[in-house]
Design a protein around this nucleic acid. Structure first.
Lengths: 180, 180
DNA sequence: CCAGCACTAGACCAATCGGTCTATTCATGC
DNA sequence: GCATGAATAGACCGATTGGTCTAGTGCTGG
């Protein structure tokens, strides 16, 4: 039994990830969450923008969780990257190939608000930092780890885009061979 | 003196690249192009979708042109990639950091139309093929060239995303050091 | 000079947009 | 049992959406 606020953010997240900020109407979010409009503006006083930020934050934490789950039981960096990519590809398949990077899909194309951009680049930084931490723990030097993390992140964003265009998650699965 | 159809596609392209398909209203396109609605539906009978496809096609050709201009006078592959990235970063700066990949910004988040997805993945394939051709011409084996092109394309898409989030084109300029 | 067609021009439309507002229900502390 | 604030419920709003339709304009071949 998730509370109303969370349910709204999660449903909104799914929709934003597929159709982008402007592509989703509040009516659709409300219907899927089974929640009336009054509740939305009670929990998110700034309306749609608040909702998108909350949705992105949830998706961002979920990705962090997947990063940890992948690297925690890895023998070396390449091993962790491989597990990570396979998990993401599976996540992509579950949503029928309609999904890009859950965060950039939600926040890009939204209002060109400074708050949006900062949230977005902050989330990206957290991801890269976390990957870099794991790389160091698995034996890489700080410099190696940092650029490996950046290389992985950048090409992962690209893979999400290409996978979506092709409706095919294999691009993501081929990533470890390409960047490690 | 560009004709009305082209003017519409170009103006629409700028807007789509910044705000995405659903983020742009026809009224805004019409106003910026200084063209009445009747003309739009004369030149693009299927309306907004046609317009987006035409805009993406123009942007795609422009990128191909930049690829050629960068690699034609390059001594080796790394040299070509560097020139290419610098040109793109400059293009990014000209548009005040509001722009992502001109094609994915236009077509992603649009109708989940099969035509859109095919156009998108076709354009991406053309870019990668062209880069791969140049890499081979500059001495790489077909396999090397193909995976180098893919590596460049994927991380370039990611760089566009990150550059936009940070409003900073340096990510793009640092790309050659990261992927070559 | 005029018939025909490509094109421009913009009024108009139903549908949907994000957002506001009031009324009601529910839970909780006294 | 009652008061209070949180939360739900949804009617309602003006603005804007993409799209249609009718008029009018201007070029071109005969």
């Amino acid at each position: 039994m998730t509370d109303t606020r969370t349910k709204l953010a999660i449903e909104a997240g799914f929709l934003f990830q597929q159709k982008g900020y402007h592509g989703v109407g509040l009516a659709e979010v409300l219907e899927r969450a089974g929640v009336p409009k009054g509740s939305l503006y009670h929990h998110f006083p700034n309306g749609k923008a608040d909702l998108a930020l909350a949705a992105a934050e949830i998706a961002a934490r979920e990705v962090l969780r997947i990063i940890d789950a992948s690297f925690d039981e890895a023998d070396d960096y390449t091993d962790g990257v491989t597990t990570f990519c396979y998990k993401l590809a599976k996540y992509f398949d579950i949503h029928e190939g309609k999904i890009g990077c859950p965060v950039s899909a939600t926040l890009h194309g939204g209002p060109d608000n400074a708050a949006f951009r900062e949230a977005l680049s902050g989330i990206f930084a957290r991801w890269m930092d976390r990957i870099s931490d794991h790389a160091q723990r698995l034996g890489q030097s700080p410099d190696e780890a940092s650029s490996a993390a950046k290389r992985l992140f950048l090409s992962l964003e690209g893979s999400w885009t290409l996978a979506r265009a092709r409706s095919d998650s294999n691009v993501i699965r081929e990533l470890p061979a390409l960047v490690c």
